[in-house]
Each structure stands twice: as C-alpha cells, then as structure tokens.
C-alpha cells in the first residue's frame, strides 16, 4: 500500500506549506543577520506593510468581489487610532492598541461598506472613494487626532511586544514580520473556511448564493469589516514600523491605487499574490532608478524617475489584465510546474 502511494507521489513532493515555512525560516533566522539597514528601511519594511494591506484588500476584492478604492483611508484610520489609543490610554500594551486600531478600521470599513448592499462594481468603487476623501479630510480638519501637533505630523511610539522592545531597523523588521505572519495565517484560515467560500459564492453568483441560503448582506459586510481590520493593522505597521511618523498625507488616493495594483498584479483571490505584488511594487522603483541613472546618468533625475515609474507600472497593469488576469501567482505556479516536470524528465 505504501509502495503504491510512494509511486503515485511526485519524486520532489514536499509536505504542504513547506515552501511557506522555508520562507519564514529564512526571514527570521537568516535575513536579520545578513541584511543591511538599507534593505530593512527601504525594501523590507514597506514591503511587509503593503503586503499586509494587499492581503486585506484581496479578501474584499479578490475573494468577496467588492471593489474598493478606500484602502489608504482604512490604513490611516488604523495608524491614527493606534497612535491615539497608545497616547490616551495609560499603560495600554502596544498589541492592544494595534488590535483596537484594527477594530476601529473595521468599524469605519463597515460603515463605508453599507453601500455595497445596493451598489455593485464600478458604482461601489466610486462610493468607496467617499471613505478615502472623508477620512483624510477628518484627520486633517480635527487636530485632536494628531494631538494638536502644529505640523500634523507626529512621531510613532517605540515598538514593544510582551516586554520585548523592538528597536532599530532589525527590531522593527522582526516586529512587522511577526504581525504580518500572524495575520496572514489567520487570513489563510479564513479564506479556506466556510466563510471564505461564502465570499467566493457571493462574488461568483449573488442570486445563487442567496437561494442556497448564504446570508449575502451579512457576508458582504463581514468582508468589509475583516478586510478593513487587516488594512488598518497594515496602516499601523506603515506608520509605526516603516515611516516612524504618522501623517494623513501619506495615506492618499495614490496609496489606495497602489494597493489595488498590488492585488491585481499579484493575483486576485490569492493570499500569496499580495506578497508577489507588493514585492514588485516596492522593488521595481528602486531597480528602475538604479537602472535609469546607470544608463542615462544625470538626465534621469527624480522627476523623470517618477514619470517613468508611472508609465511602466501603468503598462504593466494593462499587460497583466490582458495576458495574465490571474497575476504573478499564476506565472509563478506555471514556472514551478514546468521546472518540476523538467526535473522529473531528467
């Protein structure tokens, strides 16, 4: 019997999730020791925060099929809520502030998710723009949110978790990595649960979902709440671990689009996709600027870089939508199966 199963299994088969565990092991045990401060500050920290935001938006857009252009607003709610909980509640541990920040973002997401009960697709996307503009306006208008700071820019508190303090680039990286890994694991559990399948049912055929007894309205609102929770925590990481400052201007419409592009380029309805997409979005400008200044020298200044970046990203999105609507994840899976096949033949 065992011989039969061994025959059927591909020769290179690894236990499930071996790849994920391998990546995590490298991220925890190797990267902190060999990485440079530039790697953490400029690449890994924004990558982790944006990946988490991508995971959050993917739950809403990829799995539940509700388009949202308000992601940056929920990040801002998370960041400012965490700052205020931390500032105004004596002795509240940072983890509790982060959870409360997530819940605040979830509550705001729930409110701006209400139009989804009546609107779909493009119209819903436009209504989520309201979240984007309202939140940014409210955070700028009421200086209470930024503790009456004259500039509106505030410093993030030091990071600590269960008595351990996470200082310096490596510390902040480990902090962000732990939060991202934990929430991504929960998100993975969610999308492979009955609730996750209800999300897909609502996305693929709302009428059929209603007929078979999926609570459609509750499912949509739940998707908005959970997605906003995760995006809110991503906002905390963005402000506390990456930028170390909290300001509304960083969470503008451009950021919302950036997260949407991460999800589209990485792959809709795929948790891994968010990480692929975020990696591309973060690394790509750096590569472009290196390449540009190497090839063109001084002509390639920051203005040109900015323009080139927009043009290339725009072209990439069009290409992906036409040629590979399933995103980088699909490309990766195809490459992997081709390599495995080649190995097996050899």
């Amino acid at each position: 019997m065992s011989a039969v199963t061994a025959d059927l299994a591909p020769p290179f088969s690894l236990p499930r999730h071996a790849g994920t565990l391998g990546v995590l092991a490298v991220a925890y045990l190797v990267v902190p020791f060999i990485g440079s401060s530039y790697l953490f500050e400029a690449i890994l920290l924004p990558f982790l925060a944006l990946s988490l935001a991508g995971v959050g938006l993917n739950i809403l857009t990829g799995y539940a099929g509700q388009v949202s252009l308000g992601s940056a607003a929920f990040m801002a709610v998370g960041a400012f809520a965490a700052y205020n909980f931390n500032l105004r509640v004596e002795g509240l541990p940072l983890v509790a502030s982060i959870v409360l920040a997530g819940l605040s973002a979830a509550a705001v997401g729930l409110v701006f998710g209400l139009p989804s009960l009546r609107l779909r697709g493009f119209y819903l996307a436009v209504s989520t723009l309201a979240a984007q503009f309202f939140v940014q306006w409210a955070l700028t208008k009421f200086s209470w949110f930024s503790n009456n700071s004259a500039s509106g820019v505030i410093d993030a508190p030091p990071l600590s978790l269960a008595g351990l303090s996470f200082e310096g680039p490596v510390g902040r990286y480990l902090f962000a990595l732990t939060v991202v890994a934990g929430l991504t694991f929960l998100a993975y559990r969610l999308v492979s649960s009955q609730t996750g399948r209800n999300f897909i049912a609502v996305r693929d055929n709302e009428t059929a979902a209603r007929i078979i007894g999926v609570p459609v309205l509750r499912t949509k609102l739940l998707a908005f709440a959970i997605s906003s929770f995760i995006i809110g925590v991503a906002g905390v990481l963005w402000a506390f671990a990456y930028l170390r400052t909290v300001e509304p201007a960083g969470f503008n419409l451009d950021r919302s689009f950036q997260i949407l592009f991460i999800v589209i380029i990485g792959g809709l309805a795929s948790i891994r996709g968010a990480f692929f997409g975020a990696a591309l979005i973060v690394v790509f400008p750096l590569v472009l600027s290196r390449l540009g200044s190497f090839l063109l020298g001084d002509v390639f200044d920051s203005g040109v870089l900015d323009m080139t970046q927009r043009i290339v990203i725009g072209a990439l999105i069009i290409l992906f939508l036409i040629l590979e609507p399933d995103g980088l994840v699909a490309l990766w899976d195809r490459l992997k199966s081709r390599i495995t096949a080649a190995f097996r033949r050899a």
Partner: peptide
C-alpha cells in the same frame, strides 16, 4: 455555479443554510 470553487466546494455550498458557526470559530 460558483466558478472559482471546486466541484466539492460548490456542492458543499448547498449546505450553507445549515451553517451556524461564526467566522472566528471557523478561523
């Protein structure tokens, strides 16, 4: 049908009305 779900999950979705567990207990 729900195109993005497997045949098994599509058929299992027919039991959606019987579900009582909330998303937290599922996670």
């Amino acid at each position: 049908l729900f195109k993005g779900l497997s045949v098994l999950d599509n058929v299992a979705a027919g039991r959606a009305y019987a579900g009582r567990a909330n998303f937290l207990s599922q996670i």
